[in-house]
């Protein structure tokens, strides 16, 4: 049916303008809350404009009118048909329930990360045992390329606090760098998980090589005292990042699942977000501990104390992830 377009616009414009004004107001002030009467009116305007859009739909003489009305209806639809929102975000609830629950829901992905890390650490240690010259390849960091004996001697005979005045800076560097590594590990889940495997494998390889180097040289207490206080949180945090990456990868691939890909990704979005928040918090903690605690060795801090601290953290972390938020 062809409409009397000019008259139609004249009679309906007042409603469209009212709807547009409301939408603009909501757009400019996202925190605006409409009253029940305002919502009722808003819904009426949306329905009326939607009906107008349907009436005008077949008329191609005024595409700009159609475009304008379509835009209005689309914006109103978005406002009215809100995505299901959970209650207001609470950091405490996130820590005490959300994160550990999401972790347990996806425990198999975490187990996969753990296996990859253990296997790659074994390979790193094995490679160093077979050919010590591979050290510079597997540990391309200047501070790790000294021999363990040199490092331990340097640390234990230091007369000055090398970290004096640098704690905050070092801590900030560690946090931001490790969170970036975690985010990349997560994001690479979108490469069907291949990139996540590479990140975890490389991490494990380096870890295994470093551990072998110090243990083989007879500096196990130093190694444990150095790595455990922050490593028992930092390494699981990177595994959690890998876990989130594998959750994404699983939804992307969708083995044996007929659900459309977009729906599968929607279903895991909440857990991926929660796991990302979780590993970020863990890495902030690890950054603080590494800068303020891990870098002090005997005689300043006895190794048994540092090892005990690390084991206590590991126990608490295990209890937290396995128990917190259980109903």
């Amino acid at each position: 049916m062809i409409l009397d377009l000019a008259r139609f616009i004249e009679s309906e414009r007042v409603y469209w303008e009212e709807l547009r004004t409301t939408l603009d107001r909501l757009n400019e002030n996202p925190d605006t809350r409409l009253t029940l009467d305002q919502v009722t009116r808003f819904h009426y305007l949306y329905q009326r404009s939607g009906a107008d859009l349907a009436r005008i739909g077949s008329l191609s003489t005024r595409p700009e009118v159609f475009g304008y009305l379509e835009s209005l209806v689309a914006r109103a639809y978005t406002e009215l048909h809100d995505a299901p929102q959970h209650s207001r975000f609470s950091f405490w609830r996130f820590l005490s329930q959300g994160f550990p629950q999401a972790f347990r829901r996806n425990i198999r992905a975490f187990a996969l990360c753990l296996v990859i890390t253990i296997v790659s650490a074994g390979l790193g240690a094995g490679a160093l045992a077979l050919d010590y010259d591979t050290k510079s390849v597997m540990m391309p960091f200047s501070h790790l390329n000294r021999t363990p004996a040199q490092r331990v001697k340097e640390e234990e005979t230091a007369r000055q606090d090398r970290m004096a005045g640098r704690h905050s800076t070092f801590s900030a560097q560690l946090m931001t760098h490790n969170i970036q590594v975690g985010v990349l590990t997560l994001a690479l889940g979108m490469t069907w998980g291949l990139g996540t495997i590479v990140m975890l494998f490389y991490n494990g390889l380096t870890l295994g090589a470093v551990a072998f180097d110090y243990i083989h040289a007879g500096y196990t207490p130093f190694l444990l005292g150095w790595l455990l206080p922050h490593g028992v949180v930092e390494i699981p945090a990177i595994l959690v990042a890998g876990q989130a990456g594998f959750v994404l990868a699983h939804a992307l691939i969708g083995w044996g699942d007929d659900t459309p890909r977009a729906a599968r990704l929607t279903m895991v979005r909440g857990d991926v977000f929660t796991l990302a928040g979780g590993f970020a918090v863990m890495l902030v903690w690890a950054g603080i501990i590494e800068a303020f605690f891990s870098q002090y060795h005997e005689p300043v801090l006895p190794y048994p104390l540092k090892i005990a601290f690390g084991l206590a953290e590991l126990t608490l972390l295990t209890l937290y992830l396995s128990r917190a938020g259980r109903k």
Binding site: T78, H81, D82, A83, Q180, L184, A187
Partner: peptide, 24 residues
């Protein structure tokens, strides 16, 4: 940026699309 189903964007969506810039 908008939700693919034209629903209102959630913070989770915004966070994830921005975090995944790391791979994009």
């Amino acid at each position: 940026v908008m939700d693919a189903e034209a629903l209102r964007l959630t913070f989770q969506q915004i966070a994830i699309r921005n975090l995944l810039r790391a791979v994009d």
